[in-house]
Simulated scan of single mutants.
Amino acid sequence: MLFILFVIGFFGNVIGTLAGGGGLITLPTMLLLGMPVHAAIGANKVANTVSTLSNFYSVFKRKEITREEVFPIIVLCFIGGLLGGGLAALFTEQTLTIIAICLLLFAFVLSFFGKTDFGEQLQLHVKKRTASLLIGVGIYDGLFGPGSGTLLLYIYASEKLAYMKAVVLGRVGIFATCFGAALMYIVNGQILWAETLALMIGSIMGAQLGIILARKISAKLAKYLLRLITAILIVQLILELL
């Protein structure tokens, strides 16, 4: 079981870094292995916190991001993740699945109107609208998770950020939301540590490979990859709901 968790952590984070949606691999597999739903979500949060922190460190060393631009993202997403993690016990899995489907469908449709195409901007200016969306995704990520990385990429694409910049800031956002949520799951005693550590090791390795691959992908290919992952996520969530 631990080796399977390592493998899904690796592949889930390669995909999650490139287009979000890593949860479509990790979460269903953990549930199939018999992990309780809140323990599975908590393991995802802890593993993603550490793997995205490793991404954060590597891109910061390369000076691809600055403290000034990531600070508001970390604060907003952390607050959202903390709130979501605290509210998680109040919602059923069915309700969270419906919310996820609605959010992803909305983002998917917008992508065909050119509203969420990646641009050439290398600096994110956090406006009120962007701040609200970041908190909202943070709450959703703390509550449930699958698709939150994808939703962050759509937010950054709507601001016409370059793909690589969007990936980097997406990982920063996921770090903050998962950190806030992970604290709540740890405090509530919902973490199975052996399983979580196996997932975490695979996640760190997958996240590093994902960043390397992201530097080689064009904005056009990234757009199609993002749509593909979104469509798969929507189908998977609908099947789970039914």
Rank of each mutant, 00 (worst) to 15 (best):
M205S: 15
V168Q: 13
Q121K: 14
I135R: 01
S148T: 13
A219R: 12
M164D: 13
K165I: 10
K223L: 07
I186F: 09
I232F: 15
G149C: 06
W193Q: 05
L153H: 02
A222L: 02
T177E: 10
L133C: 10
T196V: 04
L237D: 01
I212H: 14
G145P: 01
I229P: 02
I201K: 10
L122R: 15
Y140L: 10
A231L: 13
V168F: 13
L221G: 13
I238R: 01
Y163K: 09
L183Y: 09
V168W: 00
V235Y: 10
L199Y: 03
Y140A: 04
A181L: 03
I204R: 08
K165F: 08
L197A: 15
G173A: 09
S148V: 11
H125Y: 06
L228H: 05
N188T: 03
G149W: 12
L169C: 12
H125I: 05
A182R: 04
L161M: 08
G142H: 04
F118C: 14
I135S: 05
Y224A: 01
L239I: 12
Q123L: 15
W193N: 13
A162K: 14
P146K: 06
I191A: 08
Y156W: 02
Q121G: 15
A166W: 06
L143K: 06
T196R: 05
E195G: 07
I238P: 01
V187Q: 14
F175H: 02
Q236L: 11
G145C: 06
A219T: 06
V168M: 05
M205R: 02
N188H: 01
N188D: 13
V137I: 15
T150D: 13
